[in-house]
Every structure is written in structure tokens, then in C-alpha cells.
Simulated assay, not measured.
Amino acid sequence: MEQKLRSASSVDELMSLIYPSYWAALKCRSKLSAAASLATKFIQRPAADVEEPTYAAAYLNFDILKSIELEWRKTQCMPREVCIDVGREFGAPTNVFYKPPCVSVYRCGGCCPSEDKQCRNISTGYLSKTVYSCLSCLPAAFQHVAS
């Protein structure tokens, strides 16, 4: 059971493992209430409504679970836009600098749902970026004129 919990890849899967029958009923109730609220826009209901059934452990808040799911999705292993230092990436000599000094690329990042896996790329490609390279050591004549 612990291995299944550790390898769960979504809130839905996790809740299905922890509360199997309750989670199914709660999801069904959620879908029914969503359909009922949609139906009330089109159909006038009589004043004496039938009371909705209540379920045990109704303390689970779907808004909280949705925020957990959103955070979970953000942290999954996938390509992410990162900023890299051009000089460090290419091992430039210390007298050379680049403008812009950093460029945006996509690199693999995030967490895997299972501890026995590691987030890393399965393919690579070359990306062309145009930067301006400058020599930080100016000739002596230019240094004297500039000061």
C-alpha cells in the first residue's frame, strides 16, 4: 500500500487509494451537484426541494484538493523555462562577456511521482540564440581616451 501511495501521480489517484468508496461517491456527488446547478439555470424548480443526501467524511474540501492538484501539476517532471548564464554554459574566457548575459531555454525539471525514478531529459536538441560577445580588456589606447 505504501508503494502505491508513493507512486500516486495525482490527487484523484491518491484519494482513490486512501478513500476508495467514499472518493467515488464524493466525485459522483460533485458531478451531480454541478449538473443540478446547470439544470436550475434552465428549469424552474418547485419551492419544496428534496434535500440532498449527505455523506460521511464530508470534511474534504474540493477547493483545497484543486489547489493541491494544481501545485502537484506544477511540480511534475517536465520541460521548464530556465535562464542560463551564457559565459558559464560555454566556459568562456574571463576576458569575454556576453550581452545579454543570460538566455532563456527549456530544461527538464520537477519531481517524479515515484522515488525510484529521476527527472531527466529523454531527448536533446540544439537551439540557436544570438548574443553579442564583448572583450572586457580594451587596448591601452582606448582605455586612456575613455578615462
Rank of each mutant, 00 (worst) to 15 (best):
Y19I: 13
A34Q: 09
P113V: 07
W72P: 02
S21E: 14
S10F: 04
F97C: 04
S114N: 11
M1H: 14
S67T: 15
S104G: 01
I43R: 09
F97M: 01
P46L: 04
S123Q: 13
V82G: 01
W72L: 13
S37W: 01
S30Q: 10
Y106F: 14
C112E: 02
A56Y: 08
P100M: 07
L26C: 03
F97I: 00
M1T: 06
P46Q: 15
R45W: 08
Q143M: 12
F90G: 01
I18P: 05
D49L: 15
M1P: 03
L32Q: 14
Y59G: 10
K4V: 10
Y55A: 03
R88Q: 05
C28P: 00
K4R: 12
W72N: 05
L138E: 06
A24V: 15
K27Q: 15
Q3K: 15
Q44T: 11
S136H: 07
C28M: 14
S114I: 04
W72I: 07
L135F: 07
T94V: 04
A57S: 14
G109E: 00
C83F: 02
P20I: 08
Y126N: 07
C112R: 00
W23K: 03
S104W: 02
T94Y: 01
C77T: 02
S123D: 09
R73E: 15
K129Y: 00
S9W: 05
W23S: 06
V50P: 03
A35S: 06
K66M: 03
C77M: 01
E71M: 11
K4H: 05
P93G: 03
S128V: 09
T124A: 06
K41R: 12
G87F: 00
L5Y: 11
